[in-house]
C-alpha cells in the first residue's frame, strides 16, 4: 500500500489502483455526512478534484493521485457517508483508477514513511 501527502491510500489490485483516505484523515475530518463520487469512465489527470466530501465541519476534496481512468466508484458511500469514519482503510474506499502511468505510484510513501509524515 502507498500513501500520499493528501492522506490518501492507494492499493494495487492487479493493475487497478483502489483509493481511499487514511484513518488519520478520517479522524481529522470528523463525522462525514456527504460524499460525491465521479462517474465511472471519467478520464482524470493527477491532482484533479475527483471526490467531494463534507464533514460536520467543512468540505474537502480528494484529488486524483494518478493519471488514468476511473473504472469503479463505491456507490455505498453516497447513501452511507458515515462508513468513511467506520472503516476508512477497508470497506470505505472511494474509487478505482486504471493508471495510465503506473510508475507514478513510485512517487508515493510506504507505510513507515507515512506514519513518520503524520507524526
Amino acid at each position: 500500500m502507498k500513501f500520499t501527502e493528501e492522506h490518501e491510500w492507494l492499493r494495487d489490485e492487479d493493475g487497478v489502483i483502489v483509493v481511499g483516505i487514511t484513518q488519520h484523515a478520517a479522524e481529522q475530518l470528523g463525522d462525514i455526512v456527504f460524499v460525491e463520487l465521479p462517474e465511472p469512465g471519467t478520464e482524470v489527470s493527477k491532482d484533479d478534484e475527483v471526490v467531494v466530501i463534507e464533514s460536520v465541519k467543512a468540505a474537502s476534496d480528494i484529488l486524483a493521485p494518478l493519471d488514468g481512468e476511473i473504472t469503479e466508484v463505491n456507490e455505498a458511500l453516497t447513501d452511507e457517508p458515515g462508513k468513511v469514519n467506520e472503516d476508512p482503510m477497508g470497506d470505505a474506499w472511494f474509487f478505482k483508477i486504471k493508471a495510465a502511468e503506473p510508475s507514478q505510484m513510485d512517487d508515493y510513501m510506504d507505510e513507515p514513511a507515512y506514519q513518520e509524515f503524520v507524526g
Binding site: 470528523g30 463525522d31 455526512v33 460536520v56 465541519k57 458515515g82 469514519n85
Partner: peptide
C-alpha cells in the same frame, strides 16, 4: 468543539 463521541452523536 467536540468530545470523543463526535458531533453527530
Amino acid at each position: 468543539v467536540q468530545f470523543p463521541a463526535g458531533v453527530l452523536k
